[in-house]
């Protein structure tokens, strides 16, 4: 009888984390630290988000893959430094963004993030795991003609759906500047798409 009562609780340990909300995961991370089970849950929950975020920034699949691996390793190693001043997802995004920037700097040390990297547009159509949507590919090519700052803001806002407050927290930027940057990026992309059409 007691065995029957313990059985569902045995099975629910992994499910409990998967059923937890983000706030509950944040609370557990702050209370108990990063356990292996929690890390596995974070990987399964945020892996796709991190990959597509890095892929939008880096375009190359291989670079995005490296950035994802490095980002989660840093999450595992620096979990105790998470102070809970932001959401867990924002923290993960920030580490992934940081890893993407580090990877770009490693590939091209003299890069200026105020300038665009149009050479990235050339490798889009030849890379792996494309959705096949033409207009999406054109938009991705047009993103390569944006300065990296605007590209990041547009990606976080348009594709990831983050709020201006989260993006401001992630980038340590004021919301007003982010809105202006997003607006400029949007208009510029519309011009590019009209040109590329």
């Amino acid at each position: 009888m007691s065995h029957e009562s313990t059985k569902p609780s045995i099975m629910s340990n992994a499910q409990r984390l998967s059923n937890c909300t983000e706030d509950e995961l944040t609370a557990e991370l702050l209370r108990d630290g990063m356990s292996s089970a929690l890390f596995v849950e974070l990987v399964s929950r945020y892996q796709k988000l991190v990959y597509y975020h890095c892929r939008n920034l880096l375009v190359s699949h291989d670079d995005a893959d490296d950035a994802v691996q490095n980002a989660f390793i840093k999450i595992w190693q620096n979990a105790q430094q998470f102070k809970g001043e932001s959401q867990l997802k924002t923290w993960v995004y920030r580490i992934a963004t940081n890893e993407s920037i580090n990877l770009i700097r490693k590939r091209k040390p003299s890069i200026d993030f105020d300038e665009a990297q149009p050479e990235m547009a050339e490798m889009i159509s030849e890379d792996l795991y494309l959705s096949g949507d033409d207009i999406a590919l054109k938009l991705q090519k047009a993103l390569c003609f944006l300065p990296f700052k605007q590209k990041l803001v547009f990606t976080l806002r348009y594709f990831e759906g983050l709020s201006y407050a989260d993006i401001a927290l992630l980038t340590s930027t004021s919301e007003g500047a982010l809105k202006a940057s997003y607006h400029h990026a949007l208009k510029k992309l519309e011009i590019y798409l009209n040109v590329l059409r």
């Binding site: 939008n56 699949h61 795991y129 959705s131 096949g132 949507d133 938009l139 594709f159």
Partner: peptide, 12 residues
């Protein structure tokens, strides 16, 4: 772009 949502170009 604001009214016409375009999906991501990558799908792994």
């Amino acid at each position: 772009l604001e009214n016409e949502k375009i999906g991501p170009a990558f799908s792994a």
